[in-house]
């Protein structure tokens, strides 16, 4: 019970303290790898999103889109 109280107190104190960035700049080499880009090539993403938009009724929150049609 005593240990549990210590853990609860520690967590409570930690929660009250400021949250600091937990991934340091020097720890981001994996995230900086080009393969980790949500979309590597905008010109290709724009086109495939255009295809989806013309064939599907949903729109919005695509990440990257384009205009136009050609869909009848």
């Amino acid at each position: 019970m005593k240990h549990l109280l210590i853990v609860v107190c520690a967590l409570t104190l930690a929660a009250c303290g400021p949250i600091k960035p937990w991934v340091k700049p020097y720890e981001r080499q994996n995230l900086a790898d080009p393969i980790m880009s949500f979309e590597r090539d905008a010109v290709a993403t724009q086109y495939i999103n255009h295809v989806y938009e013309t064939r599907e009724a949903s729109r919005g929150a695509e990440g990257s889109g384009g205009g136009g049609c050609g869909c009848n």
């Binding site: 905008a42 724009q46 255009h50 695509e62 384009g66 049609c69």
Partner: peptide, 25 residues
């Protein structure tokens, strides 16, 4: 040729400014 699709697609242009931009920062 098709208004229905065009009208909902042209609005997708907002995200064009994201072309080529990185997402990490």
């Amino acid at each position: 040729m098709v208004a229905t699709k065009k009208t909902k697609i042209v609005i997708g242009l907002l995200s064009i400014f994201a072309m080529g931009s990185g997402q990490v920062s």
